[in-house]
């Protein structure tokens, strides 16, 4: 999977959980700034990312996944 594909997958997950248009998912989207990204959404995002990428996210990583940017960076570190 290349970088762009991964980014699009992250966008898809966020647009589904946050119920926003995929075009609205950009670098500004984050917990505490994006209205829809609240405590409940944070839980759903972590679980959805695990399913989408078939991974098990460590708590140390999961607690930092509070923005689109952080998630893309984290996903890019995953092998494959």
């Amino acid at each position: 999977m290349n970088k762009l594909e991964k980014e699009n997958q992250v966008k898809k997950v966020l647009s589904e959980v946050l119920e926003k248009n995929i075009n609205e998912i950009n670098e500004d989207v984050a917990l505490n700034t994006t209205y829809e990204w609240d405590s409940q959404a944070m839980v759903s995002i972590i679980v959805a990312l695990e399913e989408e990428f078939d991974i098990d996210i460590e708590l140390e990583d999961a607690e930092k996944l509070t923005s689109y940017k952080a998630i893309v960076e984290y996903i890019s570190t995953l092998t494959n």
Partner: peptide, 11 residues
């Protein structure tokens, strides 16, 4: 650290 960051609260 943050009332909205459920993972950090859980941790």
């Amino acid at each position: 650290p943050d009332p909205r960051n459920i993972v950090s609260l859980y941790k």
